[in-house]
Every structure is written in C-alpha cells, then in structure tokens.
C-alpha cells in the first residue's frame, strides 16, 4: 500500500476516511435503532432493522478494513460482511413470513394495486 500510493494516500488521509466510515456506520446504526423503537408496527420495524443490517454493518466493517490494510484480517472482515449480507435478507424474510403465520396484520398498510395480471 505504502509502496504503491505514497503521496495520494498517506496514513492520515486513510485514518480520516476510516473514521468517516465508522462514524457514518454508527450514525446509521443509531438511526435504524431509533426507527425500530419509533415505527408503529412490526412490518415497518423490519425495514428499520434492515438499515442497521446492511449499510451500517458495511460501513463499520469497511472502516475497520481500511485500518487493517492488505492482510488476512481484511479478508476475514470481508468474509463477515459477505456473510452478514447473505444472511440478513434470509432472516428478515423468515421473520416477515413467521409474522404472517402468527396472524399479525400490517395495521397501517394500504393495499397496493397488483400492478399486473396474476
């Protein structure tokens, strides 16, 4: 890293970028948590939780990756990110499906018109 790009990416700049990513990730995480507290029913809360699972986790892990540089640590962080992004939609979908099975209705929902034939 240092050999390739000494003038463009000094450590300070890398630190700043990583700090920005970490702060952004924490901000998104808190936003999602506030949404989970604030939103009116279960189905809307799933969307708020989705924010903390996708971009918040991605930004925090990306910030850590910048700190680690090109090492095995970065590969492991990338693997955690990949795994989180593969599993979080499955968990969300399973949650929503289980909620319909328990009979929970999306109380605030207006029904969308089926936009085509089926």
């Amino acid at each position: 890293m240092d050999l390739l790009l000494p003038p463009l990416f000094p450590d300070l700049l890398l630190d700043l970028l990583s700090m920005a990513l970490l702060i952004g990730g924490v901000f998104l995480g808190i936003s999602g948590a506030v949404g989970v507290i604030r939103f009116p029913d279960f189905y809307t809360r799933v969307h708020a939780a989705g924010v903390t699972d996708t971009l918040s986790a991605g930004m925090i892990l990306a910030g850590l990756m910048l700190q680690a540089g090109f090492t095995l640590v970065t590969v492991k962080l990338a693997f955690i990110l990949l795994f989180l992004w593969l599993t979080s939609p499955v968990a969300s979908h399973a949650l929503a499906r289980a909620a319909t099975h328990t009979g929970a209705k999306p109380v605030t929902a207006t029904s969308g018109e089926p936009s085509s034939s089926n």
Binding site: Y43, V46, H47, A48, G50, V51, T54, L55, W85, S88, P89, V90, S92, H93, A96, R97, T100
Partner: peptide
C-alpha cells in the same frame, strides 16, 4: 430477486 428485494431497506419480500 426476493433476496435483493429484502436486502434493500424499505422493501421486504414476505411470500
């Protein structure tokens, strides 16, 4: 498709 829908916050595939 369903995974992509769910992964983007704001939309969830239920069934």
């Amino acid at each position: 498709y369903a995974n992509s829908i769910t992964l983007t916050p704001g939309t969830v595939a239920i069934e």
